Structures are given as structure tokens and as C-alpha cells.
Amino acid sequence: MIQMTMRAVVLSQPGPVSNLQLQSLPIPEPTEGWIRIRVRAAGMNRSELHTRLGLAGDSVQMPRVLGIEAVGTVGLDPSGTFTTETQVATMMGGMGRTFDGGYAEYTCVPVNQVIPFTSELPWEVLGAVPEMLQTSYGTLSVGLDAQPGQSILIRGGTSSIGMTIAVLAKLMNMTVISTTRDKTKGDRLRELGVDHIIIDDGNVAEQVREIYPEGVDAAVELVGTPTLRDTLLATRMHGTVCFTGMLSNQWTVKDFYPIDYLPCGVRLSAYSGESRDLPATVLQRFLDQVAAGSATVPLDRTFELSEVQDAHALMESDKACGKLVLLP
């Protein structure tokens, strides 16, 4: 019997986790230039939390199936670009915002935002990788132009992005300083190879300069604008701070006066990216490194689609240490 419907998590309007409802929807049909993917795993992101809370702006059209990323296998590609059952990843490009995303058994996305790969890693591990790797790789390569052997501060180190940046930085032989507000998460950071762990009490710059008196070469801001000034103060002259994340949900600096706000000679950049910013070669290399044991995917735990409310509650609590993944 041909399957005509699928299970999907639908957000009807912004609000509490109870607004996320598991529903039965028709399996989507790809139009010209689009591809249907059988979703095997979908990483969860704060972007989806922002959407649920109504912080994503007017670009989100509801009701909407959330999920800005997914991994799975090609189900139907009218363009013939990919053969059926090819392993693929996809992310961003409007997923979960302007069109239905990865919180479902199937999703349709533009073919130009599909990245093929080959791996025997479990789907839950693969599901944690795409957006996490794209953001981390882009932050290091584009936002920071990080170089082997440099020192790097990761502000918000126990977030999934922070942990992945640490993994990639150690592969570059960088010295990594990561922050956390929770002392109990220190062991998890040590497992990733983090060299120095700082308990974030709001005054990280002073603690960093006890290790590097001149300041670090590079820093990643993942908490947001409340800690950005302090992160800048932890960075050496001609060092770079990349603003990548907003775990605090605070995105702007009030009354920003650059000469007063920016320490002399410290550079401030930013990074945000799309699927095109994660080359297939980079994705494949990382998956091969994970399979070989030379890299780690910071996966916290997995949830079934029916457990999506629990998953969002955990994400909102900031108690997770690593990536959360939904398994359709």
C-alpha cells in the first residue's frame, strides 16, 4: 500500500511548547527545482526556539513545520541530480520558516541546498552535524580566519556550536579556552580536549588575561550582546572576535558608540551562513574523522517526534550539553 501521509510537528502560532503538535499531513510533492528527502534525523536549533517564542520576525508563515536542518535519503528528485537513497544533508534557505522543515518524516527543499555524503555513522549522530558544522567551520574560517597554533576563547562553550568549534579548533592545534556557567559541565569540555575552562561569572576577560596577559588571538561570542564587551576585552590587540550566537536572545547593543565600545585595535566580525557555505568535502572529511575516532560529535540526546515538547522544554532550559536531535 502506498503511503500518502506522514507525521510532522506543526507550530500553529507562537507560544509555549504545547503549541507544538504532532499531526498527520500529506507527504509533500517536490516542484521543479526541488527534491524530496526521507528525513532520518533532524538536529534541533535555537532558531526553532526563537520561532516558537515569536522572536523570528515576520518571515515565518504559520502554521509551519519547524526544523532548519535535516539528514536523510533522497526520495524523489525530478531533476535527476541525485539518485534515490543517496545520503544527503540540508539546512537553512528558509527551512522551517518560509517552507516546512525537518520536524517531519519527509521534507521538500531546493535541490541547490542539498549536500551529499557517504557514512555508516548512526543517523542520530549524522543528524547532529550539518548546521552545527556549517556554523562552526564558517566561524573559524570566515569569521576569524583562525590559524593553527593560535589561542581561542569560546564564550558559551557548552552549547552545541561551542563544543563543535572546540573540536575543530583542536584539530587545528589551537589552544582552547571555553566558558560555562555550570561547573558540572567541565568534564564534558575536558573530554573534547579543551585546554582551559572558565566559569563565567560575567567577568571572563580578567580570568582570560591570567592565562594570556596580552589577551587571546581569537574569540567566539555565542552568548550575545550582554557578554560581547567583556569578550572583546579578553582579546589582544589585532585579535578578532566573531559574533556568531545569541544564546541570551539579546541581539543588539543599545546606544552603540564604536570608539567607546571597541577596545583599541580589537577587530569585531560576525558569521552566519547557509548550506552553500558547507562544502561537501568539508562535511565528508569531518564525518570520516568522526568514524576514525579523531573527532567527536557533541550529541546530548535524541527524542522521538512525539517527544518534541519535552525536547523544546529542555532546549529552553539551557540544561542540555550538546546537540539535541529528533528522530522521525
Rank of each mutant, 00 (worst) to 15 (best):
Q13H: 14
G67S: 01
F303I: 01
S141I: 11
V74L: 09
T98M: 07
S141N: 14
L262G: 05
I68H: 00
P110G: 11
C321E: 02
A70M: 10
V109L: 12
T158R: 12
A89R: 08
G43H: 01
H312W: 03
D260N: 15
G101S: 03
L66G: 04
P130A: 05
S294L: 00
L49Q: 14
R97I: 07
D288P: 04
V71C: 08
G138V: 09
C108G: 07
L153M: 08
G138W: 07
I177A: 12
L287Q: 09
T231Y: 03
I199C: 06
D277A: 09
S159M: 12
L299A: 02
T90S: 15
A280P: 06
A166M: 04
A166L: 01
V282F: 03
L171N: 09
S79K: 03
L20I: 04
F243Q: 15
M132F: 03
V308E: 07
E124G: 00
G75S: 14
T107N: 09
G193H: 10
E304N: 10
E85K: 15
L262K: 11
T51L: 06
S272V: 12
A166N: 05
F286R: 09
E316T: 06
S119C: 11
D187F: 00
P78H: 09
E29T: 14
G94F: 06
L168V: 06
D201S: 13
V194P: 06
G156I: 05
V216P: 02
I154Y: 04
L76R: 14
F117P: 14
D217R: 03
A311H: 05
G54L: 02
A104H: 10
M172C: 07
V10P: 00
A56E: 01
H50F: 12
V109A: 10
D77F: 01
I199P: 01
R301A: 05
E48D: 09
V39W: 05
R46F: 13
G239Y: 00
V266W: 09
E85H: 15
S159R: 13
D288V: 01
D200R: 13
T135K: 09
L11D: 07
E85P: 04
G273M: 13
R188Q: 12
E221P: 03
T164Y: 01
A313G: 04
P14R: 12
S136C: 07
D200M: 06
K170P: 03
P116N: 11
R190L: 02
T227E: 11
Q21Y: 00
S294F: 00
G33P: 12
E214R: 05
V167A: 01
M92V: 08
I161P: 05
K170R: 13
